[in-house]
Design a binder for these strands. Sequence first.
DNA 1: AGAATATTTGATTATTTTTTGAGGTGGCAG
DNA 2: CTGCCACCTCAAAAAATAATCAAATATTCT
Lengths: 225, 225
Amino acid sequence: MKKILIVEDEQKIRKVIKSYLQDEYNIFEAVNGKEALSLFKTKNFDLIILDLMLPEISGEEVCQTIRQVSEVPIIMLTAKSSEENKIEGFDYGADDYLTKPFSPRELLARTRAILRRSSNQNRASIISLNRGEFKIYPDEMTVKKEGQECDLTSTEFKILMTLINNAGQVLSREQLADQVMGLEFSGFDRTIDAHIKNIRKKMNLDKDQYIVTVYGAGYKFTGDI
Amino acid sequence: MKKILIVEDEQKIRKVIKSYLQDEYNIFEAVNGKEALSLFKTKNFDLIILDLMLPEISGEEVCQTIRQVSEVPIIMLTAKSSEENKIEGFDYGADDYLTKPFSPRELLARTRAILRRSSNQNRASIISLNRGEFKIYPDEMTVKKEGQECDLTSTEFKILMTLINNAGQVLSREQLADQVMGLEFSGFDRTIDAHIKNIRKKMNLDKDQYIVTVYGAGYKFTGDI
DNA sequence: AGAATATTTGATTATTTTTTGAGGTGGCAG
DNA sequence: CTGCCACCTCAAAAAATAATCAAATATTCT
């Protein structure tokens, strides 16, 4: 889960932001610039949401300090509404700006957009199995066997990708369910089995080809990628 | 090194932009529309960054004039006050737009994105589908099926173009909404569905023709372009 | 301002996927 | 070899998601 640092002195605003982001992200909080900078040194955040108006060290300073050593995306929250101030403020190296009062939903949308952009830079490329017999296109969510589309559902595809991304490792049904359906999923073991069955059937795999059942433990992906 | 032309009357902004782009690109500057057009005639730019609000000749005019003879990517800068005009910006043939005050880092990110895209595939001015059954005219925002105009609205057209520009890739409803209605849009998912329905109806498409629903994920454009 | 268009929305229906439970299968330890 | 337990399969139920529609808003045009 991606880690986001919220730097905001007003507790109320911090809380609202947190409530909107915590379902998708791992939230850390700092109430002033000093705390922010010391937290920043200890963790690798994926995004920083930074209030401009902070006690002691200002948001601008925090932003500039961080920029000297890191390219982490920064969204700045500014209370100054006059356009003049914003233009002056826009060169501290932030990636985006929101003027208070802002809509938390918009903040969420911008957060997603920025994180998408930064994760898009190393976009997953085509995965080829068995010298081209299978081709997997992560962006397109498709799998082809000898040019013919296998038509996996999104859950099936996610399970397959999880196995591939952890190739060689045995993943328990629980680990797979956590990854694919989310932690709150509390269904039966057989759910994963059913999906695995469908994947094997749709990709026409033998039971020991690529997706191997590890008796008493789970499944693992084997074979050259 | 790729050549970028910045057309902006405010020196301060021009300077900031230049400082962010000059490491990677060869920067040229114009302070008004006239200068821009005359520079444009002498050099083959890879990208033009164009302020909408210019003295003498407006940014829109500059954009239209350039578009009459060239497919060079254009990023438009628009002032917050004319936010309603954003949509029109696309009509003038801009490839992307940023609202002032904007973040220079975001401009850099979009610049890289656009140049990466345009180096891969120089977009045709007319897109033909299924050996001419459909013809799409991006500049005119029209789609014809066997010569007959399909009469898409601008939102519908933009959704279609977004899908085509990312052909093969699955785009979530949120991504589509971000691209087409902007990040501040916070409406319901069904909005996109409704537009897709209209596009399919107006273009008389089957559900698996070109615009494919990817259950649980979004939509994608498939088929030869 | 009023009409015409376009967009958004909420409700309803339709569709697809996911989950589930039961029964069958087969490996593995004793 | 035998029985147990984990796994596989299947099909039906349940849940999730998408399509469609009509009405409410918003926008644009005249």
